[in-house]
Design a protein around this nucleic acid. Structure first.
Lengths: 362, 362
DNA sequence: GTGAAAGCGCTAACAG
DNA sequence: CTGTTAGCGCTTTCAC
């Protein structure tokens, strides 16, 4: 029913030429008489022809589609990256398909991923904050051009990313300049190198200022708001509590802010809070969150460019590209208070305004 | 280099059977000896076989992939829908591919869309807050199972969506009960029926309460935060200003809140603000935003179910499914203040804390 | 229960 | 410049 599919054959018949000529005319390659080409193109346009990708990819030729493999579409950072990649891809007159390999770390080794790998895409951009090494090894084995974007684990695959260590050091120095001496750090999960690098920057800056690193000031988190809340509660209620908290990402910083309030403290007067990522909400809250902005647009563009290089076989000279991140000062940091760290009463179990992260059964 | 692709042939040779048998064994269809099947499956697993979708779709058989066509990946609502759809699809052991038809309303009629239509997906979920009628007509022509999710225009295609009118009426009645008599409404863009329906609910509730609709209280917006700010400024600085503002979505409500503050007014004491959508940020701001929550999970599941029906040819008995939305009361609404609407000084051009929407050149 | 043949829409390679 | 042949990996149809 409805419209029958338009194939090269349809056009060939209507134009009175062979299928091959139509193919060449439409793809702009091979020698075709200008006149023929024009005619064929006109008919194709009229009929609303769009090439059957499946057939194209079966022949192993380029599909002009690049794929994104992502496993967390909820993340503001990732959505920004995807937006930027979309733009870049579009400017190249290519198409973009996103494969959401939701689920856990070990997900989609053969499912889905396999499908995409099987030729649909010319290349793949990986935006995987949680990727397992097993999965990564599989990708290394494959003969598909691939670039890791912003999230990585040790690998030989090319990586394009924003700076973490330098910016984290800058954050820490900023806090030091404000007179803070006990600065807490809330780490993220270890599935990506991001948190470690940020922590390293924090530690380097402290050491650079001649301040010993106190393990009691480093709390574990998982990049989720809730974990930031809990980590901050732990930090703030301990003896000799920090006067500033640096969270490895904005979400956790928000949780930390919740905790500060739940502890009856003021932000930034009593406790300064800094995040990382500069997600849109960081600018929207009051007071605005001091944080770090990664140049996601530049990262995305570069990643696409890198991928294109791999696709065209000009296999990488540069295996790792890093763009410096930038400190964004807002109102969540202030001069360190005079008080020595006094022990604080722990708040009620679930802090007001704290949103529980959705937990999925299964 | 690296791993050569594993095809049915590879497996057939290794198993000492024909390609056909392998195909049947793997797909579970057709009669195959249990023994053969087990053997074939074992080899397939061992070799890490994953079927070449391209070939599959070329034969027009089902690919077990469903596609999402979306044109705004920045939207929190849409991301929530996509998350829910992902889950539903996964539970069905199918795969999901997202096609981001960014750009304008008239975009992707033949590009991209065409590709997906050409068989990659068994069916398409459309999450298109901005879709043109032209585009919609094209889709209607196509012989591909399609379901519109949450956003729609007049069409014969099936639609699964959350309620708008009833919930908007509930919001309005809530404000009326708080004593508000002059309630402003900020409309969204007209590309989807959502804004109109929400406005209708607002008007119905007012009329139901015997209050005449004042066109001066209805301001145009485009669902963006900035437009909410501007619309609210206009409402608040006019003579006989409203004591409550109902924005057609949360983003605009946030803009309205910025405006309330920029005008030197307090929220909710001087002006109550209500949004629509219950995006995560609505719960995160202080005071929390009273808004409406659409049952996105239910909507998404139903949409997938509807789509599956179409795919299996059981063409729809039900063309429109609607799930009731729910009023979420938080702290942005309060009893109407005593003051008569006094004229307010307009704020400085760009309100503090207002984030300009990114404008893309080209 | 299994296999052989044909063909999906397209393009690379080689004629003409 | 244009046409012919062959074949990508798979499934459908029909044979054994």
């Amino acid at each position: 029913m409805k419209t029958p599919p338009v194939t090269l054959i349809t056009i060939a018949e209507k134009a009175g030429v062979s299928v091959m000529t139509v193919s060449r005319a439409l793809n702009g390659e091979g020698a075709v008489a200008e006149k023929t080409r024009a005619k064929v193109r006109a008919i194709a346009a009229e009929l609303g022809y769009s090439p059957n990708l499946s057939a194209k990819m079966m022949k192993g030729s380029r599909t002009n589609v690049i794929g994104i493999l992502v496993n967390d579409l909820q993340s503001a950072v990732i959505n920004e990256i995807i937006g930027a990649v979309s733009g870049a891809v579009r400017r190249l007159e290519m198409d973009l398909v996103i494969y959401n390999s939701i689920g856990g770390v070990d997900d989609a080794p053969n499912r889905g991923l396999g499908h995409m790998l099987q030729g649909l895409c010319d290349g793949l951009l990986l935006i995987l904050p949680r990727i397992s090494d097993v999965h990564l090894r599989q990708l290394e084995q494959r003969d598909l051009p691939v670039v890791l974007v912003n999230y990585w684990r040790p690998t030989q695959l090319p990586v394009v990313r924003g700076g973490n260590g330098d910016a984290a050091a800058a954050v820490t120095r900023h806090l030091l300049q404000l007179g803070h001496r006990r600065i807490g750090f809330i780490a993220g999960s270890a599935f990506t190198g991001q948190s470690q690098e940020r922590q390293r920057g924090y530690e380097d800056a402290l050491e650079g200022a001649g301040i010993a690193i106190d393990p009691a000031l480093i709390a574990p988190g998982d990049f989720g708001r809730r974990s930031g809340y809990e980590a901050a509660c732990a930090l703030l209620t301990a003896a000799d509590a920090p006067t500033a908290i640096f969270a490895a990402n904005d979400e956790m910083a928000f949780g930390a802010i919740d905790a500060v309030r739940a502890c009856g403290l003021r932000m930034p007067q009593d406790v300064s809070v800094v995040g990382f990522d500069d997600i849109p909400a960081a600018a929207h809250v009051h007071p605005g969150l001091t944080t770090v902005r990664q140049p996601l647009a530049a990262i995305s563009e570069a990643a696409v460019r890198e991928l294109l290089l791999r696709i065209s076989g000009a296999g990488g000279e540069q295996q790792r590209v890093e763009f410096p991140s930038e400190l964004v000062l807002r109102e969540s940091t202030a001069k360190a208070p005079r008080r020595a760290g006094t022990a604080i009463q722990p708040p009620a179990p679930a802090g007001a305004g704290t949103r529980k992260r959705a937990t999925r059964k299964g």
